[in-house]
Amino acid sequence: MLKIENLHVRVAGKEILKGLSLTVKPGEVHAIMGPNGAGKSTLGNVLAGREGYEITAGTVDFGDKDLLQLEPEERAAEGLFLAFQYPVEIPGVNNTYFLKAALNAQRKYRNEAELDSMQFLKLVREKLRVLHISDDLLHRAVNSGFSGGEKKRNEIFQMALLEPRLAILDETDSGLDIDALKMVAEGVNHMRSAERAFVVITHYQRLLDYIVPDYVHVLAEGRIVESGDKSLAHKLEQQGYAWLEERRLPERSGV
């Protein structure tokens, strides 16, 4: 589904990703952990198509598409979703209106019939019920004045509504209390399926108690230096990232 090979990325002239490789198959949940400054958020942003990142080498295939050639909205319509570390507040744009516009733009891209207001609201109510989210978020402007927890809840709600093939969660756990964290995890677990994959980027192991990954990768200094199963996350929790120091030199690729 997602195949990243030898990805090199520069930001403002500085190389952040230095030959990252990662393969994600349908149904899998991959966790990417790593110290601050390792390039975790850069990876999420590059995959979603944010401007300001210069790709100097490498390829990213998403399904049968060259992901790096697509506009951000095309990537979304192809089924890629990025849950933002810092969801953007957009006063003056109603959340429901925005989501309907987003969903219908994606459907149009995929040559599917657009939903009218009734069909859309029916779908919204269904998703809200499953996620145990109240509908008060819908009537407000996008993330505007939302608490940290509400913003992340809104990200998960968007993900549920847009039903991506691949969801990337960029430090969705940062700044969340345990209840909000569980809500995020429930949302993800509910959506896990044989066709859908997740890449969970996190600094802490805590989230992985609730979203149990199939694979854990350690990202340090712009490349994946260690891969394993969920026990790797526990090892990191106990030993910190310091033990990775000796592991930075060997050329290793991801799974």
Binding site: E73, R75, V88, L99, A105
Partner: peptide, 25 residues
Amino acid sequence: DANALFYLRSRGVGEAQARTLLTLA
């Protein structure tokens, strides 16, 4: 706001429509 523009586009809203939404807002 480039961040807001990217946020809308990352959800599938086309660039022209995203610009219109933000300008209206």
